[in-house]
Amino acid sequence: DEEIEKWIETLLKRNISLRVNGKDLEIGSEEFKEWVEKFIKEV
């Protein structure tokens, strides 16, 4: 979905790490990609 890709790009540009389930996810890491894929499937 384009919306999500733009959102991810924005996050990448800002180099933010997300806190997911109490863990810091490094943007661009494998864990982050897995989380994004799960997130996309749920939406």
Score class of each variant (00 low, 15 high):
residue 5 E to A: 15
residue 24 D to V: 13
residue 17 S to H: 09
residue 2 E to H: 10
residue 27 I to R: 06
residue 10 T to N: 13
residue 16 I to C: 15
residue 8 I to A: 03
residue 14 R to V: 14
residue 6 K to M: 08
residue 12 L to Y: 03
residue 42 E to S: 10
residue 15 N to K: 07
residue 15 N to G: 14
residue 30 E to H: 10
residue 39 F to D: 00
residue 7 W to H: 00
residue 38 K to D: 06
residue 3 E to C: 15
residue 21 N to M: 05
residue 6 K to R: 09
residue 43 V to W: 15
residue 36 V to R: 02
residue 8 I to M: 05
residue 39 F to G: 00
residue 12 L to W: 04
residue 25 L to V: 09
residue 41 K to R: 11
residue 5 E to I: 14
residue 31 E to L: 11
residue 11 L to C: 07
residue 42 E to Y: 15
residue 39 F to K: 03
residue 32 F to T: 00
residue 40 I to P: 00
residue 16 I to E: 14
residue 15 N to S: 06
residue 17 S to K: 14
residue 22 G to E: 07
residue 32 F to E: 00
residue 1 D to Q: 11
residue 10 T to C: 15
residue 15 N to H: 14
residue 32 F to R: 00
residue 7 W to V: 03
residue 4 I to K: 03
residue 25 L to N: 01
residue 32 F to L: 06
residue 10 T to G: 06
residue 20 V to M: 05
residue 26 E to C: 14
residue 43 V to E: 04
residue 11 L to R: 00
residue 42 E to M: 15
residue 38 K to W: 11
residue 42 E to L: 15
residue 5 E to K: 13
residue 18 L to Y: 01
residue 41 K to Q: 10
residue 28 G to W: 08
residue 33 K to I: 12
residue 9 E to H: 05
residue 9 E to A: 09
residue 17 S to R: 07
residue 4 I to D: 03
residue 11 L to K: 01
residue 13 K to L: 14
residue 32 F to G: 01
residue 31 E to T: 03
residue 24 D to F: 09
residue 10 T to S: 14
residue 23 K to D: 03
residue 6 K to A: 09
residue 31 E to H: 09
residue 11 L to A: 03
residue 25 L to I: 10
residue 36 V to F: 07
residue 42 E to K: 08
residue 40 I to H: 02
residue 22 G to N: 04
residue 15 N to I: 15
residue 31 E to S: 07
residue 37 E to T: 13
residue 6 K to H: 12
residue 39 F to P: 00
residue 11 L to H: 01
residue 4 I to M: 08
residue 13 K to E: 12
residue 16 I to K: 04
residue 27 I to Q: 04
residue 15 N to R: 01
residue 1 D to H: 10
residue 1 D to I: 11
residue 40 I to Y: 08
residue 32 F to N: 00
residue 37 E to G: 09
residue 36 V to N: 00
residue 23 K to Y: 12
residue 16 I to G: 13
residue 21 N to W: 03
residue 15 N to A: 14
residue 43 V to A: 07
residue 7 W to T: 01
residue 23 K to E: 04
residue 29 S to H: 04
residue 25 L to M: 10
residue 35 W to G: 00
residue 2 E to A: 13
residue 18 L to V: 09
residue 3 E to R: 12
residue 8 I to P: 00
residue 40 I to L: 12
residue 2 E to W: 12
residue 7 W to C: 15
residue 18 L to E: 01
residue 21 N to P: 03
residue 32 F to W: 10
residue 19 R to M: 05
residue 20 V to W: 05
residue 14 R to G: 15
residue 9 E to T: 05
residue 43 V to C: 15
residue 38 K to I: 06
residue 34 E to P: 01
residue 17 S to D: 03
residue 8 I to D: 00
residue 7 W to M: 06
residue 2 E to L: 11
residue 28 G to Y: 04
residue 9 E to Q: 07
residue 10 T to A: 11
residue 9 E to M: 10
residue 20 V to A: 05
residue 13 K to Q: 07
residue 20 V to K: 03
residue 2 E to N: 09
residue 13 K to M: 09
residue 24 D to P: 10
residue 29 S to L: 15
residue 29 S to D: 03
residue 1 D to Y: 14
residue 34 E to W: 08
residue 9 E to W: 07
residue 34 E to A: 14
residue 11 L to F: 14
residue 41 K to W: 04
residue 20 V to E: 03
residue 19 R to F: 05
residue 19 R to A: 10
residue 4 I to F: 08
residue 5 E to Q: 13
residue 11 L to T: 01
residue 40 I to G: 01
residue 4 I to A: 04
residue 7 W to L: 06
residue 12 L to P: 03
residue 8 I to N: 00
residue 32 F to A: 02
residue 43 V to D: 04
residue 21 N to E: 08
residue 23 K to R: 10
residue 29 S to G: 06
residue 35 W to M: 04
residue 16 I to R: 00
residue 14 R to E: 15
residue 26 E to R: 05
residue 13 K to S: 12
residue 3 E to S: 11
residue 19 R to L: 12
residue 5 E to R: 12
residue 2 E to G: 08
residue 8 I to F: 05
residue 39 F to N: 02
residue 23 K to I: 12
residue 37 E to W: 11
residue 42 E to C: 15
residue 23 K to S: 05
residue 33 K to S: 04
residue 37 E to A: 14
residue 31 E to K: 09
residue 26 E to A: 09
residue 1 D to G: 12
residue 28 G to A: 06
residue 6 K to V: 05
residue 25 L to A: 02
residue 13 K to N: 14
residue 41 K to D: 03
residue 33 K to C: 14
residue 5 E to H: 12
residue 2 E to S: 12
residue 22 G to W: 11
residue 25 L to E: 01
residue 10 T to Q: 12
residue 8 I to K: 02
residue 32 F to K: 00
residue 32 F to H: 01
residue 26 E to W: 08
residue 12 L to E: 07
residue 36 V to T: 02
residue 7 W to I: 06
residue 27 I to N: 04
residue 36 V to P: 00
residue 25 L to F: 10
residue 13 K to C: 15
residue 36 V to S: 01
residue 39 F to A: 04
residue 35 W to H: 02
residue 39 F to L: 12
residue 3 E to F: 10
residue 38 K to Y: 08
residue 23 K to M: 09
residue 9 E to G: 03
residue 42 E to W: 15
residue 31 E to A: 12
residue 29 S to M: 10
residue 41 K to H: 04
residue 15 N to W: 13
residue 16 I to A: 07
residue 1 D to V: 14
residue 41 K to Y: 04
residue 34 E to V: 13
residue 12 L to M: 05
residue 37 E to D: 07
residue 7 W to F: 08
residue 28 G to H: 04
residue 24 D to E: 12
residue 3 E to G: 09
residue 17 S to C: 14
residue 8 I to H: 00
residue 43 V to L: 14
residue 18 L to D: 01
residue 12 L to K: 06
residue 27 I to H: 05
residue 29 S to C: 04
residue 42 E to N: 10
residue 35 W to E: 02
residue 39 F to Q: 03
residue 22 G to R: 01
residue 28 G to L: 06
residue 7 W to A: 02
residue 18 L to Q: 00
residue 27 I to S: 02
residue 28 G to E: 03
residue 3 E to I: 09
residue 11 L to G: 00
residue 30 E to W: 11
residue 3 E to K: 12
residue 1 D to W: 15
residue 1 D to P: 09
residue 30 E to P: 12
residue 43 V to S: 09
residue 7 W to N: 00
residue 19 R to V: 13
residue 4 I to E: 02
residue 5 E to N: 11
residue 25 L to R: 05
residue 17 S to Q: 09
residue 12 L to V: 13
residue 43 V to Y: 14
residue 40 I to E: 01
residue 13 K to T: 06
residue 12 L to D: 02
residue 26 E to P: 09
residue 35 W to R: 02
residue 33 K to A: 06
residue 4 I to Q: 03
residue 36 V to E: 00
residue 17 S to T: 11
residue 30 E to L: 11
residue 18 L to F: 12
